[in-house]
Design a protein around this nucleic acid. Structure first.
Lengths: 205, 205
DNA sequence: GTCTATACGCGGATAGAC
DNA sequence: GTCTATCCGCGTATAGAC
């Protein structure tokens, strides 16, 4: 792998763990295995590394989210959500949750953006759009279709999306960086989805 | 007001806005109106100020949360929640939301703990217990009582508490530091509570 | 592209006068 | 309890050899 990319990879891990201000150029360089001065052959400075991380990670993230049907663009197929069985929704939910919780790129990106939300306005806007606005927007469209199809009870689709997605964010925060409680976390996700369907689904099961 | 307390007050504001590492002792001193060296007459160092903020703010926070029925201790009165009308729940929800969003102590405390969650283990544990564990635990007890009383549909009380509370955290994050969107935020809270009651309440209204 | 050497400011913190 | 003066290390970043 190119040095230029390894810098982003290592810096992301460090920023996620210690925060932007808590990481020095020397530490990043050490993690990569070069001298601090050499970083400047690849990036103009620290802020430049930070911005490059956001730009790059965002792309990979967007692709996976779209595949799972939580993306900003056109869902994998609006109709693929119709006729979805509980079992399928549980699988997708589990996949989404584990991706955001543990994926090597997605998890550090989320942690970094979350903690830098207030300090850096780009980080703040990116966090909001990636983990809040885009997901809610996308899920609102999905529920609109499901309500129209009669698979989900009538109600405001935006509120329904909020009811479905908000617990994911809370559980992510709660079980973040606690690998020993992963089973508990997954059980909580499953219980949430299950009860959501019992409250919102047209038919039992 | 005593200098010792003013230090905590100003430091909290700064930490909430720029993060712990982003604030210098000189900046704190300037906000208070004294020299940096004078801070050491009141606190052993920066970390000591940080810890004192948490300890102090936590007390005030706990009192208010308990009053609203989201506290860790015995709810204001377990039965006071019974026979609650939608109107009352809307009022309490609104009060809770605005308190967490805008209160002069509560809002900066929440922002600071949230952004320092990963960097500082005390901050992380405090955030989890104040904004996640204690609230969910407390709400779980409330819903247990309401389900037993037949005012809320049968279901896992812990999941029900999650469904009720998680949207608050998401909306807080979404509308934090955006005073111009406050009306929109309150409308979202109201829509959430309203639809929650329609899905979970025994009777319409 | 990577290294060594170095500049320079700002960080937290202390000493000691008033 | 507040001040001025100061210490010292570490932060980002640059210069220039290889």
């Amino acid at each position: 792998m190119e040095t230029k990319d390894r810098i982003l990879q290592e810096a992301l891990k460090l920023f996620a763990a210690k925060g932007y201000d808590g990481v020095s150029m020397r530490q990043i360089a050490a993690a990569v295995g070069i001298q601090a001065a050499s970083l400047y052959s690849h990036y103009a400075g620290k802020e430049s590394i930070f911005n490059a991380i956001i730009a790059l990670s965002q792309e990979r993230y967007a692709q996976t989210m779209q595949r799972l049907g939580f993306g900003p663009g056109p869902s994998p197929d609006p109709r693929s959500m119709l006729g979805l069985k509980e079992k399928d929704l549980q699988r997708i939910s589990r996949e989404l949750f584990l991706y955001l919780l543990k994926d090597e790129t997605a998890a550090p990106l989320r942690r970094m953006l979350s903690s830098e939300q207030s300090r850096d306005s780009i980080a703040g806007k990116t966090y909001q759009s990636l983990y809040v606005d885009e997901v809610l927007e996308s899920q609102t469209r999905v529920f609109e279709a499901l309500i129209a199809a009669g698979e989900i009870r009538k109600g405001d689709p935006a509120v329904t999306a909020l009811h479905f997605y908000a617990p994911f964010l809370l559980l992510l925060n709660r079980y973040d960086r606690k690998p020993e409680r992963e089973a508990e976390a997954l059980a909580a996700v499953e219980a949430h989805v299950s009860q959501f369907l019992r409250r919102y689904g047209k038919k039992a099961k």
